[in-house]
Simulated assay, not measured.
Amino acid sequence: MSGVEWGHLGWLVLTALVVAALAMAVTAAWSRRLRRVAVVDVAWGATFAAVAVVGGVVAGLLGDGSAWRRWLLVALVVVWGVRLAWHLRTRVLGSGHDDPRYEELLGGPYDEVPFSTIVTKVFVLQGVAVVVVSLPVLVGLVTSARWAWVVGLGVAVWIVGVVFEAVGDAQLAAYRRQPRSSRPPVLDTGLWAWTRHPNYFGDACVWWGLWLAGGVASGWVAGLVTLPAPLVMTWFLTVVSGARLTDRRMRGRTGWASYEARTPMFFPRPPRRS
């Protein structure tokens, strides 16, 4: 990456910060109106898509990079982000209550936590995370691919991630549609027999794939500089608001202890007998 390209990357990062800040400000107002923090889940994927689209337009105006990879990266982010936002829209807005994970994260229900704390711990944190995680995409928008085969490898990892996430979400939705009286206490079939969180694992794969296609394919320096992006996303999915919080909430449910003992939390492996 030349000095000019690094300078152009700075403009893209600034653009991403503005887009993320506007998106999270609107989402915070929406949250206050509904008295529900979980609406940020709907905005999460949509904000990534908005950052990618606006970044793609700005990068095109700056004139750097390869057009084919630029719009490939934008398309990958938009497909992932829009699917995720649409899926979570139905779940979040149709539930009538907040996600218990956020109550645990904030230390209480929405009405018992200062709004400033909610903004800082949720909306500011996630807005900054969107920009950090988007760095490989932003780099890929203003640079040419040094290794086309790495772009292909990244797309392959992205596909694995989308499949895990979409199929896992569909299997969970089908499980929840069953009457409580007749469904098993724990979903332990399909991808959920291979990992306790196939949707979170898929999410992580999507962003490791985008790191390969956008960061690493631009050169080793770009790959190292953007490495925090997939690490931050994986940290969010496993520690901050994902797998560990969900596991903590599920402990005590009938059948969970044996399911937890035989099924890995994150990385999939073949089902193991009890």
Rank of each mutant, 00 (worst) to 15 (best):
S2N: 15
S2V: 08
G3S: 15
V4I: 12
W6I: 09
L9Q: 04
L12I: 10
L12V: 13
T15C: 15
L17G: 15
A21W: 15
L22I: 15
A23T: 12
A23G: 15
M24V: 06
A25C: 10
V26I: 14
V26K: 10
A28T: 09
L34C: 01
R35H: 13
R36S: 15
A38P: 04
V40M: 01
V40G: 13
V42N: 05
A43E: 10
G45D: 07
V53E: 11
V54C: 11
V54W: 04
V54T: 14
G56F: 05
G56P: 11
V58D: 07
G60T: 14
G60Q: 14
L61Q: 10
L61D: 10
L62W: 11
D64E: 15
D64Y: 11
A67R: 14
W71V: 12
L72S: 04
V74N: 09
A75M: 07
A75F: 06
L76S: 08
V78A: 12
V79H: 14
V79Y: 10
L84A: 08
L84T: 00
A85K: 02
A85G: 13
H87V: 09
H87P: 02
R89F: 15
D98S: 03
D98A: 05
E103V: 12
E104F: 03
L106H: 05
L106N: 08
G108E: 09
G108Q: 05
P109I: 06
D111H: 13
E112A: 14
V113M: 06
P114D: 05
I118H: 10
V128R: 09
V132C: 08
V133C: 00
L135M: 15
P136W: 14
P136Y: 07
V137F: 09
L138K: 05
T143E: 11
R146F: 07
W149C: 06
V151N: 04
G152M: 07
L153I: 08
G154C: 05
G154I: 11
A156L: 14
I159C: 15
V160I: 14
G161T: 02
V162K: 05
F164P: 02
E165W: 05
E165I: 03
G168T: 08
D169K: 06
A174R: 15
Y175A: 03
R180D: 14
S181M: 03
R183D: 05
P184L: 06
P185C: 01
D188W: 02
T189G: 02
W192F: 07
A193H: 00
R196C: 04
Y200Q: 12
F201T: 02
G202H: 01
W207H: 11
W208H: 03
L210F: 06
A217Q: 01
W220R: 09
L224A: 14
L227E: 01
P228C: 03
A229W: 10
V232N: 03
M233I: 01
T234R: 08
F236L: 14
L237T: 00
V240D: 02
S241R: 08
S241W: 06
S241N: 11
G242L: 07
R244S: 03
R244W: 10
L245F: 08
R248P: 00
G252P: 01
A257K: 12
S258F: 00
P264R: 04
F266W: 03
F267D: 00
P268Q: 06
P268A: 13
P270T: 09
R272N: 07
R272P: 00
